[in-house]
Design a protein around this nucleic acid. Structure first.
Lengths: 235, 235
DNA sequence: TGAACTAAAATTGTCGACAATTTCACGTCT
DNA sequence: AGACGTGAAATTGTCGACAATTTTAGTTCA
């Protein structure tokens, strides 16, 4: 039942921190609709905090690219756009490809074992369960898979750039598209793990780039088959 | 004589914005030494602003990865580390490689012409001038080159991630290493431009990745030949 | 001498009030 | 009716003061 902390898994010691986590969750889960303007006095009243703390939380949300601010105008939740989603996939192809290459070199054996068990569980769940609650779990498992590899790269900056600056956006879109996780994608995951086991960085990067590119194509295909109303819901 | 705005090229309409630009410049140029703790009351007095505005500026500096904050402890300027520099090069290899690939497809003819003239001027300057003021100009020219290609990728998110989240750090290190720009690097630039002219994305990516990797190796070699005192100056 | 406790000083976090700017509503003019 | 200008209302930016936490300095005790 976790919200999937990934990064941002620190204790909210200060009011602004707790507010940031609450608002982040609200945005990702759709409580605060995409594209909506944020009213500082209104939100400050709702959460029972001062405007100063709220502004600090909004500033953190801006770092995650979940809101955009303009001076003297205000902040608004990031809005849904197919083009932006495709841009994100292109960046993930490059960065996660590099992460896989580095992980093949730097991942520890326990980390590899953990990744393997994760994929095995995932495969099991995909084979044995009905389609009912599959998507939810699969999506989390997918994020876990990518997170493990990024962490295994042992490049701290790469980790923070992906987790802090990009993955919140990934969740933002994922929550609004609720795509089915295909068995094809899981097979791609397995191939990547095999390359990592062989410590073949070159191949791991190629396979990861292919996987992200294929995921992008699948997402695009799904989006183009969706009705305009379905897409419009999120604006 | 520009400070090289790259991104962040907006008018500082608010006090916190101007403060942010001033502090950013101070950090990059070494007025605020690396690793130093930021005293909010002290800085607020120096710049003659309230602590609130200063805190907002610090928050923006945190986005640029130029300072790190810990709750109830405070903010300090990012500190110099060879490992971190190497991490940044790895990320640049992946992201700028992708940028070159996309630029080969999406760059407009005027943009390409501008890039060509930029490299030509660069080559000229490297051939005709003495070594005196060469490095300064060359460094800016190098950044301009990379910036042009990133911009030519037409991936807005890639542009902001590189310019806002990474390139300030690149400048931070560049200003403290003051490396000579080699004619080798310039030849690599020329090869990349030729690939872009042919609209050969595959080759452009390969050449850019090679260029970034070679630059990393050159930087590492320079660093290892520096004395510990030289390196220690920046802590 | 040095480790541990204590109180004072300094620093960061939080808040409410005021100033500057934007947004909205109304009335006027063409 | 619609465009334009004006003033009020609302929103954001800025500030100084207070509260909570951390750091420091000093003292005591083993």
């Amino acid at each position: 039942m976790p919200f999937h902390p990934a990064c941002h898994s620190y204790e909210p010691v200060t009011i602004a921190d707790r507010l940031f986590l609450d608002l982040r969750r609200a945005i990702l889960e759709g409580d605060l609709p995409a594209g909506k303007k944020i009213s500082e006095p209104e939100l400050a009243n709702i959460y029972g905090v001062s405007r100063g703390s709220l502004r600090e939380a909004i500033s953190k949300l801006e770092n995650c690219n979940l809101v955009t601010r303009r001076p003297n105008i205000g902040a608004r939740i990031v809005s849904f756009s197919i083009d932006q989603l495709m841009e994100i996939y292109q960046i993930r192809e490059a960065m996660e490809g590099m992460a896989a290459r580095l992980a093949a070199k730097n991942m520890t054996e326990p980390e590899l074992a953990h990744l393997k068990s994760l994929v095995a569980r995932h495969k099991d769940s995909l084979a044995h369960t009905e389609r009912t609650t599959k998507t939810d779990y699969s999506q989390d498992a997918d994020l876990d898979f990518h997170f493990c590899i990024i962490q295994g790269s042992k490049n701290q900056r790469l980790l923070t750039m992906l987790c802090q600056d990009l993955y919140d956006l990934v969740r933002f879109y994922r929550m609004r598209l609720s795509p089915a996780f295909s068995s094809t994608a899981m097979q791609e995951h397995e191939l990547i793990v095999q390359a990592l086991e062989r410590r073949d960085g070159e191949m791991a990067e190629l396979l990861m780039r292919y996987h992200v590119r294929a995921s992008r194509d699948r997402a695009k295909q799904r989006l183009e088959s969706m009705s305009p109303e379905e897409l419009g819901n999120h604006h």
